[in-house]
Design a binder for these strands. Structure first.
Lengths: 337, 337
DNA sequence: GTGAAAGCGCTAACAG
DNA sequence: CTGTTAGCGCTTTCAC
């Protein structure tokens, strides 16, 4: 194995000079830098990762903890993982893959052994057991998603307030005057300051601004609950022509329920979903939707983490702007109605 | 940070004894082992990964290089990645994630810096630019899939010969007497000793054994080619009641072509596919199929790699037995025909 | 069965 | 702008 002393000898300088040339931590004359680079190339030198980590207390590896078994919507996960790895590489870091199942022990292990310099934790739940640990671990971390208690944690996710607004704007521009948001089950709203609440706030505010009449209705998952919710909605708001669904498990059942009630989509009812593109594309009627921008989330997460690693200040919350993709489920309101 | 000397002092032994207690590389009296374990727990000691890697020239990390963008069949990839990570952990190893795009440079980098002890390389092509490198890298590696020239490389994949046989056996048991294999495009067969050839061999041998009449037909991808192949097949083999398709891109077009020709599946024609479960499940008629056993491939790949890391001897080729899942596309041959 | 001590290859003061 | 030197925390001979 060729080591830094070999390079130093070959270039006629001291090992530290080679080290500095590599790290850029002090200025080197053009001439010696040149010779060093040539020697490195000539000898095929590569710094030993372990030695470097030991001496510098920096491994240049970040951990990515993600759910690897969740049967659902892997394309989003994959896209995310790809962008994390790619972006990490541009910052000269590698990515260690941890499964969600490793949980807190996994985080403690990679942090405690100094295997990694920082953590990216996906799929953070409102009430996530890992968040207290992340606060005390002493390693920089970035969470994908917002826990109920996000103070002191760096979190990133889609901007759900803006998402609610964007959905309403889309419907308003199509001429709809009476709209509803079908959101998460009641307990999610009750539970605290989750994304559910933010979507609803954005939705309601925008509806007011556009002078539309609006309703927000929670919805339990499952066929029966969906049927009931849809019926109630159509009964209580006879003028309803547009709905926004922000409830992935209830989405399919709700669509069925509407169609069962004789509402054709988009002829009688325009539907906007907040869900992965994958799902929206493959629905019976392809759904106009706002998706989680996985690739951008991954990139930004890495950038935030890198900033923290270089003791940069980063915002606690990063909210990414929604992008609404128009598909077949929304249409102009029929003026004759 | 608590280090090995702290543990040693706390336990009243020397650092080397703690090290040996941890590694099990020499016998320790029950009593001191006990004390050491208690001290470790009491102090919350975790060995520094970098220091350990430097001193032992073992990082206890393996690299997994996989395609992270291939829009196609991520569930298989994910399942595979999950099983690799999980199995690696049971061998006290972590997994560094590399994208396919990093290619040879990526492998050279993680090997050259001693970041990893071994490599698992997915999605190996018949003519894969990485294989010559893997031969000379001096790090143990395991390939998923067989390159044309596999000598001296440890490869693992589905047993395609047995797969061809299993498909025929299934059709034979349903009473079919005249079957065809629709395989890869001609150039794949011409190119060498790929899986295509093995499936065909197994298919033909089994058909003979069962006294069935059989044909093997290559098939180009694309609508037009599929139509043509299907037509030709039905024209030349009027008695055909069963086909095996081992050609993922052509699968959809072929099914359409058969149906366009008035063949109902499975009433007139039984179809067995060699493709991911995902694809088989979501076809218009759910397809009886043989899939790549992703989880098992991942587990075995890690086991092979671990064996190589401990200078164990491992077979060059590991072939996993096929499992045929029966779905709606195969039925008993109509006796009245 | 246990200890002492010499590195593993690199970085980062400190010194000029 | 460059060199000297002292570790980083662990493993592993070698010695008892």
């Amino acid at each position: 194995m060729v080591k830094i002393t070999d390079v130093a000898r070959h270039a006629g300088v001291s090992p530290s000079t080679v080290s500095y040339a590599l790290s850029g931590n002090r200025s080197i004359s053009q001439a010696t830098r040149q010779r060093i680079e040539e020697s490195i190339k000539a000898l095929g030198y590569r710094p030993h990762a372990g030695a470097r980590a030991l001496a510098s207390s920096r491994s240049n590896v970040v951990a990515l903890m993600m759910p690897l078994r969740s049967g659902i919507h892997m394309p989003v996960q994959m896209q995310f993982a790809a962008s994390v790895v790619t972006m990490a590489r541009t910052h000269d870091h590698d990515v260690l893959l941890l499964t969600q199942e490793e949980g807190e022990d996994g985080l403690r292990r990679v942090a405690g052994t100094a295997l990694v310099d920082g953590l990216i934790v996906m799929d953070v739940q409102l009430d996530d057991a890992r968040t207290p640990l992340l606060r005390t671990l002493g390693l920089p971390s970035v969470l994908i998603g917002f826990p109920a208690e996000a103070d002191g944690l760096t979190c990133i996710d889609l901007d759900f307030t803006a998402t609610g607004e964007a959905c309403v704007r889309h419907l308003a521009q199509l001429g709809h005057r009476c709209v509803a948001l079908l959101g998460s089950p009641p307990e999610v709203y009750a539970r605290g300051t989750g994304f559910a609440r933010r979507t609803a706030a954005g939705f309601t505010a925008a509806a007011h601004r556009y002078g539309m009449s609006s309703t927000v209705l929670p919805c339990e998952p499952g066929r029966a609950a969906a049927r009931e919710t849809a019926d109630r909605l159509l009964r209580e708001l006879p003028g309803l022509t547009g709905v926004v669904v922000h409830n992935e498990p209830a989405l399919g059942p709700l669509l069925e329920a509407f169609q069962h009630s004789g509402m054709r989509i988009p002829d009688d009812l325009s539907v906007v979903a907040v869900c992965p593109d994958e799902l929206a594309e493959n629905a019976a009627v392809p759904l106009s939707s706002v998706a989680i921008p996985a690739a951008e989330v991954g990139e930004r997460a890495v950038e935030l983490l890198m900033a923290k690693l270089n003791d940069g200040e980063v915002p606690d919350a990063t909210l990414l702007p929604p992008r609404l993709t128009r598909r077949a489920s929304t249409a102009p309101r029929d003026a004759s109605e």
